[in-house]
Simulated scan of single mutants.
Amino acid sequence: MSSKLKETFSDGVRAKRSGQAAAPSALEGPPAPAALAAKVRTLGPTMTRSMQRVAEAVAGDPAGCAALTVTGLAELTGTSEATVVRTARVLGYPGYRDLRLALAGLAAQQQSGAAPAVTADIAVDDPLSSVVAKLAQEEQQCLADTAAGLDTTQLEAAVSALVTARRIDVYGIGASNLVAQDLAQKLLRIGLIAHAHADPHMAVTNAVQLRGGDVAIAITHSGRTSDVIEALRVAFDHGATTVAITGRPDADVAQYADHLLTTSTARESELRPAAMSSRTSQLLVVDCLFIGVAQRTYDAAAPALSASYEALAHHRHGPRRP
């Protein structure tokens, strides 16, 4: 599905309203070493099997792979030199030389203890003390991966659209709707007109009313939730600026997104079919959007937020006595 991703211009805005292959901006540069593991986890499921072997090798043994030539890595993974180069480019590096430099940097971070290890899946018979430790590690890893892989150019563009939006619709189903509601209520409290829609019929009904100057945000970890995609498509077709928050940048939702914000792809297991770390990554992106908007509209946002706190004070402490 990667052919459906839209081209990214150097100004950070999705190129045009048609599906095209995603290409990193010339001004963005390759991702930092700390972002490499996050890139592999996020993009790995979208790669061919041969490219996955290369990606898994560099993420699993960055020090060893950094010492290999392109021919050596191709032989190690049972692939071709062309596959190695293509994998490097998909991960955001101009060529294999740049990937080797990132691998060397990542290996140095790991040796210094800066890169946390990936936790094991939670087993049925794990004691609660292990569950707490593993979940905490997983949350930390997902937040770090999301922060490392988040395209700040796209984030800045999404913030700019929200700041000037006449109206904001946020779409999400299930756990993603909890995140959608969180974003909508945050924006409402600083004076923006924002609504979260969980009902797919209401979402599409509202999306039809959007126009240029409005913003629609779709939140779907899989990127394939049809009800969310349909609402975003309608908003897109009616001229609204569209934003997708997803763990799968190659998925269907991307073809209707002017701005794509990628979250970490959480590892889900039989015991955690809807891992809470997916939601945690989404909430981090939501907080980044909110703080960005609040910074840009501080003169209006601060009094609005203060007024909402004041209005809700009696709910927390009881009504004021005369």
Rank of each mutant, 00 (worst) to 15 (best):
K134H: 03
S176C: 08
K134C: 02
A157H: 13
L155F: 07
T119G: 06
A157F: 05
C142H: 15
Q109D: 14
L135Y: 02
A102T: 10
D151F: 05
A88H: 01
T77P: 03
A165M: 06
P200H: 10
G72R: 06
A161D: 10
T77H: 00
V179Y: 03
G105F: 07
A196D: 07
T146Y: 05
K134E: 02
S176A: 13
P200D: 09
G72T: 09
V163R: 02
H195D: 08
H197L: 11
N177A: 15
Q181T: 14
A88F: 03
G78W: 05
Q137G: 15
H195Y: 12
V159M: 02
A133W: 05
A117S: 15
D121Y: 01
Y96N: 05
P200A: 08
A102C: 06
A148H: 07
T119R: 01
G191Y: 03
R189G: 06
T153P: 01
A165G: 06
N177G: 15
A108T: 12
A148L: 14
A165Q: 07
T83Y: 03
I168L: 03
L188T: 09
K186L: 11
L187F: 04
D182W: 09
G172W: 05
P94I: 08
D125Y: 04
T119E: 09
E156A: 15
V131D: 01
N177C: 08
I173D: 00
G113T: 11
A133M: 04
Q110C: 12
G172T: 13
D145H: 11
T205Y: 05
V170P: 02
L192Y: 00
I190R: 04
K134W: 00
V159W: 02
V90A: 09
G95Y: 02
L150W: 07
A133R: 09
A115Y: 15
L91Q: 01
A114R: 11
L76E: 13
R189V: 03
A194H: 05
A158V: 11
A107P: 04
I168A: 05
E139A: 06
L188N: 14
I193F: 09
D121E: 03
I173L: 07
E81M: 08
C142E: 15
R86E: 08
R97Q: 13
S80M: 01
V163L: 03
A120I: 00
R100V: 08
T152L: 14
A88D: 06
A161E: 10
V131C: 01
A198V: 12
A115D: 12
E139N: 10
V179N: 02
K134F: 04
L178Y: 11
R100H: 08
R166N: 07
D199M: 01
I168E: 01
V208G: 08
T164R: 11
A144K: 13
Q109R: 13
V124M: 02
N177I: 06
T83P: 01
M202W: 14
L101G: 07
L135C: 03
L103W: 00
V159R: 01
G174F: 02
A175R: 10
T152A: 12
A184N: 01
S80Y: 00
A158W: 08
A123F: 03
A207C: 14
S176R: 06
